[in-house]
Amino acid sequence: MTCRCWLGRPAAGWACAACSAKRFDLLVLRTQLSVLQAGTGFPGLKDKIQAIAGALEEQIAIPLIKAEMAFIQAVAGDEWWEDVTVPMLESARRRLRALVKLIPKGQKKIVYTDFEDDLGELTTIELPQVTAGLNMAKFKEKARVFLREHDSHLSLQRLRRNQALTPTDLQELEKMLLQAGGSKALIDEAREQSHGLGLFIRSLVGLDREAAMQAFGEFLQGGKASPDQIEFIDLIVQELTRNGVMEAGRLFESPFTDVNAQGPLGVFPPAKVTQIVQVLDDIKERAVA
């Protein structure tokens, strides 16, 4: 029997999983077009997608849905939709289209509506990787949240653990920023401002604390470090854990000068200060490569 779901006339619920996915594709496409064209129908389209996400939230017992629950809850909320972008919607389409079939049939009739528009002349519209008024500050915050949710990604782990990056790692990291909602223009701007994509992402996720401790382990070995030296190194580790990299000039600012007014020169011999600066440079270089 020919499936009639795509025509909007299912006899008993939405039995066809493929048609459920196609209808969701169409809904997301309309939303993407509304973002690009600043259409007045955006609020209604947003409500429909949020309703779908809300219906999925109720099916947490299903393993496939549970695996995407953090993302589903984000889409169901309002914060995710602030300055939403075409790439963000595309990511939602890809991640949720296979799940909509799992919504109980009775709920699907409520969540979805039939699309019955009068079709005019067909026009091909490109969907570029653009943002809808998304500024750099908001992009950073969205990227930070996305990267934290995908902390197990191999390339991101290499960056956080102070391991040298490969060209493939940099490509993967750029893909993650696109998935987080960044446009190519924003990513290029971030790369230029931070003097490298790895440095930009490291500034968002920080350096792994254990990796930072290992980098400065030689300064604390042997149990001969003074209390001031231990505190000074711990402050460096905290800075790296928080910001990912650290310029040598910070060593002569607070809170380091709170330990000693002369900064590192009042705590370590000159040769050790030179080594500390070299370690900081090495940590930075590993994020650039």
Results as ranks from 00 to 15, higher is better:
L36M: 11
Q37N: 14
Q37H: 14
F42D: 00
P43A: 03
G44A: 02
G44P: 02
L45F: 01
D47N: 14
Q50I: 02
A51N: 10
I52S: 06
G54F: 00
A55H: 08
L56V: 03
E58W: 11
E58G: 08
Q59M: 14
Q59D: 10
I60H: 10
I60E: 15
A61F: 14
I65G: 07
K66C: 09
A67T: 00
E68F: 04
A70G: 05
A70F: 10
F71Y: 06
F71R: 05
I72K: 06
I72F: 04
Q73R: 11
A74Q: 09
D78G: 06
E79K: 01
W80V: 05
W81M: 04
E82G: 06
D83S: 02
V84D: 03
T85V: 03
V86G: 04
P87V: 03
L89M: 11
L89W: 02
E90N: 08
E90Y: 03
E90I: 00
S91A: 13
A92S: 08
R93W: 01
R94G: 12
R94Q: 13
R94N: 13
R95F: 07
R95V: 04
L96R: 00
R97Q: 15
L99C: 12
V100Y: 01
K101W: 14
L102D: 15
P104E: 13
P104W: 07
K105L: 15
Q107I: 09
K108Y: 03
K109G: 02
V111E: 01
Y112T: 07
D114A: 15
D114I: 14
D114Y: 10
D114G: 12
F115A: 11
E116V: 02
E116M: 03
D117H: 12
D117C: 08
L119G: 08
G120H: 09
G120Q: 07
E121T: 09
L122N: 11
L122F: 14
T123R: 14
T124S: 12
I125D: 12
I125M: 12
L127I: 04
L127W: 06
Q129I: 11
V130Y: 09
G133W: 12
L134G: 00
M136V: 15
A137P: 02
A137S: 11
F139E: 03
F139L: 15
K140D: 15
A143F: 00
R144L: 07
R144S: 11
V145N: 10
V145M: 08
F146R: 00
F146I: 05
L147H: 10
L147A: 11
H150Y: 15
D151N: 09
D151Q: 10
S152V: 11
S155G: 08
S155E: 09
L156W: 02
L156F: 06
L156D: 00
L156N: 01
Q157V: 12
L159Y: 00
L159K: 00
